[in-house]
């Protein structure tokens, strides 16, 4: 399923979580490679936040297992190696910035005060400011300082760029990338802004309806897919060429006489097709738009492709 030479940060088998009668995640199997930046994408309600909560031990799975560097999420070992920035970036509003860093120092054995302070200072944030009075961007910086002060091996970021203005977005992402450059931290980041993920991630995990729809190395996934445009085949009901394996079709649209299709694998033979290798954004959009046609093996063998 996965390249055995790449160490694994997260591994899920049969993972499921049910809230009352609704399954937020169901029967998920995937691996997140260590030392890579993995983008976690999917529509709202796809189970992204649930996955983060399972990976931090804030929730227990209903079925299956998830391990963090081989340890149980939420265990002492897993907690020491993981930092999590939840979607709403929770901080104590009545603490000062100094208190907030002290919080990190008091609650973590292996704490890098200098690194945390450097991040805060680089943002020109006075240490005696109350968290509640900070701007969104400043609060994000402080939250990242607490996360990086932990010196984590795995950094989980749930929609870290939401609600930030474009400048602060670049700044926050720059901070994360700097940490990765310096320490080789494994990052799992969820975001709605697909174009921003493109220049950032090595690996992608796409969730939809609580299941894994796509999982693999970005470059390989892009190479494994092709988008072709040409004359729709009038003899077939769906306009696709007769010889094409329908199981490989991610998305196909017929507009008038023109067919545009997105398939996994190679384009149909013949020189009357204009073929292109998709960008990550195009690939993700195609999967997000498509119904659940490609069965789950698409997701499963993604990493092995």
């Amino acid at each position: 399923m996965t390249d055995p030479t790449v160490p694994t940060a997260l591994r899920a088998t049969g993972l499921g979580r049910r809230f009352r009668s609704r399954w937020a995640l169901r029967d998920c199997a995937f691996t997140v490679p260590a030392g890579k930046i993995t983008a976690l994408v999917g529509p709202n309600g796809a189970g992204k936040s649930t996955l983060f909560h399972l990976a931090t031990g804030l929730l227990h799975p209903t079925t299956g297992e998830l391990s963090v560097f081989g340890a149980t999420p939420g265990s002492d070992e897993a907690r020491a190696r993981t930092a999590f920035l939840a979607q709403d970036k929770p901080l104590y509003p009545r603490f000062t910035v100094g208190d907030t860093l002290r919080f990190g120092r008091e609650l973590n054995d292996d704490w890098d005060q200098a690194a945390a302070e450097r991040i805060v200072r680089a943002g020109d944030i006075p240490f005696d400011t109350r968290i509640g009075t900070l701007s969104q961007g400043q609060a994000t910086r402080v939250a990242l300082a607490v996360a990086f002060g932990k010196r984590p091996e795995l950094l989980l970021l749930d929609e870290p760029l939401a609600d930030l203005d474009p400048l602060v977005r670049i700044e926050a992402m720059g901070l994360v990338m700097e940490e990765v450059a310096e320490r080789g931290t494994t990052v799992v980041i969820s975001s709605h802004i697909l174009s921003e993920l493109e220049s950032v991630c090595d690996h992608v995990l796409l969730l939809k309806h609580g299941g894994v729809r796509l999982d693999g190395d970005v470059q390989r996934l892009c190479e494994d897919h092709v988008r072709f445009t040409g004359l729709a085949d009038a003899s077939t009901g769906d306009g696709l060429p007769a010889g094409l394996d329908r199981g490989t079709v991610v998305e196909a649209t017929v507009t008038g006489r023109q067919l545009t299709a997105f398939v996994r694998g190679t384009a149909p033979t013949g020189d009357h097709w204009i073929t292109e290798t998709p960008s990550l954004e195009e690939l993700l959009l195609a999967y997000l738009r498509s119904d659940d046609r490609p069965t789950e093996d698409t997701g499963r063998d993604g990493a092995a492709a």
């Binding site: 670049i170 994360v176 700097e178 990765v180 450059a181 950032v200």
Partner: peptide
């Protein structure tokens, strides 16, 4: 350095 580049333009260090 890769660190300097990614801090400024927020891209994956592996890309640099």
């Amino acid at each position: 350095t890769a660190r300097e580049v990614v801090a400024a333009v927020a891209i994956n260090p592996n890309t640099v």
